[in-house]
Design a protein around this nucleic acid. Structure first.
Lengths: 140, 140
DNA sequence: CAAATCGATGATACATTATAGCAATTATGC
DNA sequence: GCATAATTGCTATAATGTATCATCGATTTG
């Protein structure tokens, strides 16, 4: 059983044959290195179709939305006009996007996290969410 | 002459009657307080139409793109699926978005800026650009 | 087990944001 | 002033995502 499928069970998200396939594809979308793939809807639909070509793109959209609202996966809107997804992780991380290759590198920085909370507080707000994206080019 | 119009001159961006109107509207979109309005294309077209109702939405799109590519204004893609614009400022700033009201508060934080450069460097990248958005709710 | 009920799916229409194409207009250089 | 080039307005089109609706399937209820 895939990691995402297990999370669905835990959270009480009903599973169907289609959702199981999408869960598997999302689970497999997490390479072992810092650089991950973060597929978009179209790419996910392609991968899903390899397993079962009768699964509609509408179901992919609906299932991703469902998983996202359940906190099982995360949606990102980088500077492209379309959403990209990744399985939720225990530890929060941010992203550095290589402007030349589109490669995405994940990183964690405790100092930045703390600073953000502090800034929000100073402005009279409770921090609910944040988005930090760095765009850079590889040093030579 | 509006602030944006002057910048166009400086940068050699050709001005037309329509562009002058859009430049004026963008220049006026900067209130005096920390909280600014960051209008979207539709809102800008409405404001532009009050001055000259023959200006097409296509021209608004084109002109905003032109201004943005010239570094005269900045485009932001907050979590809404559409772009919002503001005049470029000398000093870089980030945004805190009130999740309840949609109000946008600008802030500057040197520590965060430095940290970002350091993180990129550690990952082997030169920082070209970044996006930091805080989403919060007003403290009571 | 059969009937009724409820949610999920697939296909497609629609909504929204933005860009592209093209003829008409306006501005620019000579 | 005329030829050329850029700009504009209108509209069609692209891209992403949501809504609709008939059908299917599973689950509950009696």
């Amino acid at each position: 059983m895939s990691v995402i499928e297990e999370k669905c069970k835990k959270k009480g998200v009903r599973l169907t044959e289609q959702r199981r396939v999408i869960a598997k594809v999302m689970s497999d979308s997490k390479p072992t290195f810092g650089s991950k793939d973060h597929p978009d809807v179209d790419e996910l639909h392609k991968r899903v179709s390899l397993i079962d070509k009768r699964i509609s793109i509408a179901t992919v959209y609906r299932t991703l939305k469902l998983f996202e609202e359940s906190g099982i996966i995360e949606r990102h809107d980088f500077k492209e006009g379309k959403s990209r997804y990744e399985p939720s992780t225990d530890e929060h991380h941010d992203h550095l996007i290589d402007v030349n290759t589109g490669e995405i590198i994940e990183f964690v920085d405790k100092d930045i996290e703390e600073l953000q909370i502090k800034i929000a507080k100073k402005l009279g707000y409770n921090l609910i969410d944040h988005k930090l994206e760095l765009y850079g080019s590889k040093k030579k």
